[in-house]
Design a protein around this nucleic acid. Structure first.
Length: 417
DNA sequence: TGACGTCAAGATCCG
DNA sequence: CGGATCTTGACGTCA
C-alpha cells in the first residue's frame, strides 16, 4: 500500500517548476528551464524519500511545451545524467511514479489535428518516464476524452485510436473514469477491449455515476482484475468534495475520518492510492501517518510543520496537540490530525494571527536589521488596521526565512498557507 | 464566445 | 526599486 500526491509539494524549498510563455520559448531558454525543473524534481524526490512517500505523480510541466516545440530538443540525452540520478533514487527507494496528461489531451477527438497532438503528448510523457528509466508499472493516466453527442461512437473512436498507438505507449497507459462523459462502466468496457488497466476515481464516480448502487469498494474490486503482472499493483485515485465549490472540485485537505472510512473498505491492502487534493503532500503525509504506524518522532516533526498554522487558528487547538504529544510511548496520529483539522476549520481571529506572526518574527528579532524591523512592523500594522491580508505579513517572514536560512520555518506550512 | 482547471509568467499598480 | 495584486497563457470541449 502506497499513498501519494500529485505534481507539486508545499513547503519543499527549491521544488517549484518554472515555465515561460510560448512566444518566449527559444531553445536556450527552454534548456535553462528544463535544467532547473530537473533539479527541482530531484529535490522533490529527495523530500518524498525522506518522508517515506512512495507514490508520486510527476508534473507534465517538467519539460515546458514538451510535446510541441520541446520535442525538437533532445533533452533526454542532454540531461541524461540528471535523469539517471533521479531514476536511481526512485528505483532504490521503491517509489512508484506516474504522469497524467490533462483534460486537453484528447485521443478520441473527431479532429485529426487534435488526435495527432494527443499522440505527441503521450509520446512526450513516455519519453520522460523512459528517460528516468522506470518500467511499465510506472503509468501514464489518460481519460477517454469527449462524448461529442454520441458516447458510443466516441468510445469506439477512442478504442480505434488507442489500438493504433505504438506498443511502448500502450504499455504505459492506464484509463481513468472522468466527471463528465465516461463513467467507470464505460471505461471498464473500453479497457477490456484494449487490455488496459483501469484507475477508479471515487469523486468522478460520485459526480458521473454508472449506477446508484455499486459502492466504491465494489468498483475497486471490479477494477483490480484489469491490473496484470507487468502493470504492477492496482492503483486508484481518491479525493473528497470541496464543500462550497461546484461538485467534483477537490477539497483543500483530506479529512482524516472520511478517509479512514474509505480506507477500511478497500479490499486488497496492496492497492496504491493517489490523493487529488489541494494541500498535496500535506494530506499524503497525514494519510500515511494515520494508516501506518511510524514513530512519535515523525509525529513531532509533523507538528513542527503545522504548529504556527494551528496557533494562528486556535490557541486551544495548539495546546491540545502539545498535550497529546507528551507521552513519548504513544502514537496519537489520528487524534492529532483530527485536532488540527478542527482548528483549521475555525475562522482566524485577527489577534491570533498577529500572535502567530509575532512568534515567527521571534526567529529574526535579534538578527534583523533596523530596516527589516521597521518593515515587519509596518506590514503587521497594515494587517491590523485592515489595509492588507495576513499573506503579506507571511511573505515578509518568508523572505526573512530565505535570507537567514531558517530551514525550520521554510519547511513548515505556516508561511505558505 | 466564455467557462472550465491549473499554475506560473507577465503586467500593472503602489508607495 | 521591491512588493502586492491582477490578468494572461496554453490546452479542447461543451453549453
Amino acid at each position: 500500500m502506497r499513498i501519494g500526491y500529485a505534481c507539486l509539494a508545499i513547503a519543499v524549498p527549491g521544488s517549484e517548476m518554472k515555465s515561460c510563455t510560448l512566444k518566449n520559448a527559444d531553445r536556450e531558454r527552454l534548456l535553462a528551464l528544463i535544467e532547473h525543473n530537473l533539479d527541482a524534481l530531484g529535490r522533490l524526490i529527495d523530500y518524498n524519500i525522506k518522508n517515506e512517500i512512495k507514490l508520486f505523480r510527476i508534473s507534465s510541466d517538467l519539460i515546458p511545451f514538451g510535446s510541441a516545440i520541446g520535442a525538437d530538443i533532445a533533452w533526454d540525452h542532454i540531461f541524461a545524467e540528471k535523469f539517471f540520478e533521479i531514476g536511481k533514487k526512485i528505483k532504490d527507494s521503491g517509489m512508484r511514479i506516474s504522469m497524467h496528461p490533462g483534460q486537453y489531451t484528447v485521443l478520441n477527438s473527431p479532429k485529426a489535428i487534435v488526435v495527432s497532438a494527443a499522440e505527441k503528448d503521450l509520446e512526450y510523457h513516455a519519453k520522460v518516464l523512459d528517460a528516468i528509466g522506470v518500467d511499465t508499472e510506472h503509468k501514464i493516466v489518460l481519460h477517454l476524452g469527449g462524448a461529442y453527442g454520441d458516447k458510443e461512437d466516441a468510445k469506439k473512436r477512442f478504442i480505434c485510436h488507442c489500438r493504433s498507438l505504438k506498443p511502448y505507449l500502450t504499455a504505459r497507459l492506464v484509463l481513468e473514469n472522468d466527471d463528465r462523459s465516461f463513467n467507470i462502466s464505460d471505461v471498464l468496457e473500453a479497457a477490456e477491449k484494449l487490455k488496459l488497466p483501469v484507475i477508479y476515481d471515487n469523486l468522478h464516480n460520485a459526480v458521473n455515476r454508472s449506477d446508484d448502487v455499486t459502492s466504491d469498494s465494489r468498483w475497486i474490486k471490479e477494477c483490480k482484475s484489469t491490473w496484470r503482472e507487468k502493470d504492477g499493483p492496482q492503483k486508484i485515485h481518491y479525493s473528497q468534495q470541496n464543500t462550497g465549490k461546484k461538485s467534483g472540485a477537490h477539497s483543500e485537505t483530506i479529512k482524516t475520518e472520511e478517509f479512514l472510512d474509505y480506507y477500511r473498505d478497500i479490499p486488497a491492502k496492496d492497492t496504491d492510492i493517489m490523493l487529488e487534493v489541494k494541500d498535496k503532500n500535506m494530506s499524503a503525509l497525514k494519510c500515511i501517518n494515520c494508516v501506518s504506524k511510524r514513530g512519535i518522532k515523525e509525529l513531532e516533526q509533523e507538528w513542527g510543520r503545522y504548529k504556527y498554522l494551528v496557533m494562528e487558528h486556535s490557541q486551544a487547538g495548539y495546546q491540545s496537540v502539545r498535550n497529546m504529544l507528551k507521552d513519548k510511548n504513544s502514537y496519537p496520529a489520528v487524534a492529532m490530525y483530527m485536532s488540527i483539522e478542527k482548528s483549521m476549520d475555525k475562522k482566524t481571529e485577527k489577534g491570533d494571527a498577529v500572535n502567530a506572526a509575532r512568534h515567527v518574527w521571534g526567529y529574526f528579532k535579534s538578527r534583523a536589521s533596523e530596516n527589516e524591523k521597521i518593515r515587519f512592523e509596518k506590514t503587521l500594522k497594515k494587517f491590523i488596521s485592515g489595509d492588507s491580508q495576513i499573506k503579506s505579513v507571511k511573505n515578509n517572514l518568508l523572505n526573512l526565512s530565505k535570507k537567514y536560512g531558517e530551514d525550520y520555518l521554510l519547511q513548515g506550512y505556516y508561511l505558505y498557507k
